[in-house]
Design a protein around this nucleic acid. Sequence first.
DNA 1: TCATTTAACGTTTTT
DNA 2: CGTTAAATGA
Length: 704
Amino acid sequence: MDLLDGLNPAQKSAVQVTSGPLLILAGAGSGKTKTLTHRIAYLISKKSVSPDEILAVTFTNKAAKEMQSRVNDLLGVNTSIRNFMPWMGTFHSVCVKLLRIDGDKMGIPRNFVIYDEDDRTSLIKQAIKQLSFNDKEIKPKSVSHVISSSKNSMVGVEEFSAVAASPQQKKIAKIYNKYEELKKASSALDFDDLLIETVRLLRDSKETRSRWRGHFKHILIDEYQDTNSAQYNIVKLLVGEDRNICVVGDDWQSIYSWRGADFTNILNFERDFKGAHIIKLEQNYRSTSAILEAASNVIAKNKQRTDKKLWTSSATGAPVQVHELSDDLEESSLVSDRISSHVALGARKFGDFAVLYRTNAQSYTLERAFLRMRIPYQIVGGVRFYDRKEIKDIVAYLKLIYQPNDSVSFNRIVNTPTRGIGNISLEKFLTWQVNSGMNIVDALCKADSIPDINLKARQSLKKLGVMAKSLYSKQDSTPPSEIINQIIELTNYKDYINDGTPQFEERIGNLEALMSDAQNYVNLSDFLEEISLMSSVDSFKDGEQVTLMTLHASKGLEFPVVFIVGLEEGILPHARVFDSSPSELEEERRLMYVGMTRAREELHITYARSRLNFGGRVYNPASRFISDMGASGASSEDSTVELIQDFDTPEYYNIESFDVGDRIKSNIFGAGEIVDVDGLAVTVKFDNGKSKKLNTEYARLEKI
DNA sequence: TCATTTAACGTTTTT
DNA sequence: CGTTAAATGA
């Protein structure tokens, strides 16, 4: 098979220029992934580059997997031959691999654990407590944010402390320092550490640097516009003398500056790598010209951008439809009505549709409408699978088994399920453990010899330790799924979560899903790495269901029909950018652009005059992006954008009135009886004995 | 001293 | 609405 077949001239040269630095400026839908996969296959089969010598960095793990299988298809190679594989993954996952191999040179133990956002905030809380600062004045979340952004711009503790001027900043510097100490004691690295420790490793260890530089003959970076300072440094450190570096990106689609991404990295590529080839991919193969034109009109309003002319040879297609609704409920009805009628007509499958929104909270109303209409859907992101409580609990056990020093995981599970260990006993144990010099698990095993702790607490601690220790020693001979099973059995975890609500079934289901997921891994290390670095889009499945996700999560995907909802000032663009720099407004506009260019055939935009936001009703004007699209009044004459006012259902939702004594049913809590009514609030005594005060406006209660 | 009940608070986007 | 921190009872 000729690897250049089916490529346009620009794509062909992007494949064939195989030596020296190369910058590919790829517009939305211009066949970027195709070009990259062909390039990799070309390097392997035509230039005899060994797959192992190729490093390809993608933005998500899913993109990496997809790229892997497409390369395999092109080469006709069996996917199961694991050694015959380029290095593919996100910056984070590649860094984990490098650090597991060479991290010991920087004093990082081979079995370090990875702390996520939650782990980090709870460790910061501990740090604040230990420094006895007033945890009311200093919010752990905001400290976490400060630490993360300084790490992303390569500012370490020392530097941060040196620069800290205000009393507030000095406090944060102390917390930062303490946090680093505690994290080190737990043998853990947070997300940002994965990057900056790799930079340190490559910068400080000459031997390591030259070894990896020699190893990677070709480096490819996708979504280069979204690299941050640390990632940029890694790239510069890894590029060898041949300078075979190929980066792909589109500054118009840069939507992660709040995470430290800096799209000037891509604008400066020529300066960084002198003599670089530049190839522009400007033909769009994805969208109809109506969609592309509307999207181009939106992005044209941005001042800070490179000039590009994206074009397509596809037909005009249906105009972009802009729907005005009276409120968020009608917005959801419109979306679900459209979807279900198109499917009923046989024109589309559920899997053809995506609904995109600015904030995760917006999925709520949509979800309810979909449930009502029996539309199968999947939510990408939001409350991620691995963020659920029961899953995080079990994973915390796994982490503690893998890394017996992991204090955050220990704190999470020490009394989960409740085993009679309170705060006081815990404090006493921890001070004893620190003094003993033992790791947490070893100390637990000796807990029965600690004076002045309750007998009951002492026994429980020891029992937990013995369990962790025995699983620790079995971790190499026992598959991860079996370890999970034993944790659940030994701790009676199922009894703990059985609270008699219908949600119990769902939780059990989640645990089973976790176990079956674990069956794909042979050892604990791989499994933990995978779930720590799993991103929201990684769990995205193409299938027979509508996809709901944030605009951010939609990057890189495409759908025949796309709905973008909540096009209101304050939502998109988000209210937070109003009182900050104009560049943030431009990023909101790029976000809109990314969303619009996901659509292949139909694009629907909706906005509501009023919306129920947490607590009260808000009235937002239509987003400025709607007029930016080139909507010329309410005309169906315009071939690009069509404005439609959908007020077909002027019905106001009748709030059912409840009386004391009514029997009701809640999807969440099951059946019960109303014992008190206070305006919109009702108190319900549920059949499982628990009572709850609910707002009838939100809680979907049904009379029975 | 622990476990359960009640009050307060919160929403931008995420590797 | 959900989660998490204080407050109360056993």
